[in-house]
């Protein structure tokens, strides 16, 4: 029993990805992050720490933000996944993306998709959070360039402009 390999077949996953019905095959031990980037080809979601500390891989799963490195791809069968690729409207940018540009709220940019997806979830629930609330909500997103002040300002700006 101990040396015998359990046969591991790929599993079909059908989910709503950025509003589109999407089907793909994933290994049962594959993370959602890996499947998004390497199977589906959506590389906007970034791998930072790959252990749930940094939030770079944040996506929305049934409307709740999660670290996609800590979700198995097999789990999202039948569910709704929203990534950074679905954030901007067809022409132009989401108000948060625009605010991040105008406030220069990014340096190397690796953490940015995760911050944007997380911040969108906050503003959808609480349109006018104060600075403390923004910092607490974004505590699960780390910026190694340490540009937190500009990120928080950008979120405040987006909140102010979408009254």
């Amino acid at each position: 029993m101990t040396q015998q390999e359990t046969p591991v077949r790929k599993v079909p996953v059908a989910c709503t990805l950025n509003g589109q019905q999407t089907e793909f095959l994933a290994a049962p031990y594959q993370s959602l992050l890996e499947a998004l980037r390497e199977v589906v080809g959506l590389t906007g979601t970034k791998e930072g720490c790959n252990d749930g500390n940094c939030g770079a891989c944040t996506v929305s799963l049934d409307g709740r933000i999660v670290d996609s490195c800590l979700v198995l791809a097999a789990e999202v069968d039948g569910r709704q996944v929203d990534t950074i690729e679905g954030m901007a409207p067809p022409h132009g940018l989401h108000p948060l993306q625009q605010a991040f540009l105008e406030e220069a709220a990014l340096q190397c940019g690796i953490c940015t998709p995760g911050f944007l997806v997380a911040a969108r979830a906050l503003l959808e629930r609480e349109p006018h959070p104060d600075e403390h609330r923004i910092r607490l909500w974004l505590a699960g997103n780390l910026c190694r360039c340490t540009g937190y002040d500009k990120i928080v300002r950008a979120v405040q700006r987006a909140a102010d402009e979408t009254t």
Partner: peptide, 9 residues
């Protein structure tokens, strides 16, 4: 426990 992403799970 954790941040919002962790508390979701």
């Amino acid at each position: 426990i954790g941040g919002i992403q962790i508390q979701s799970r």
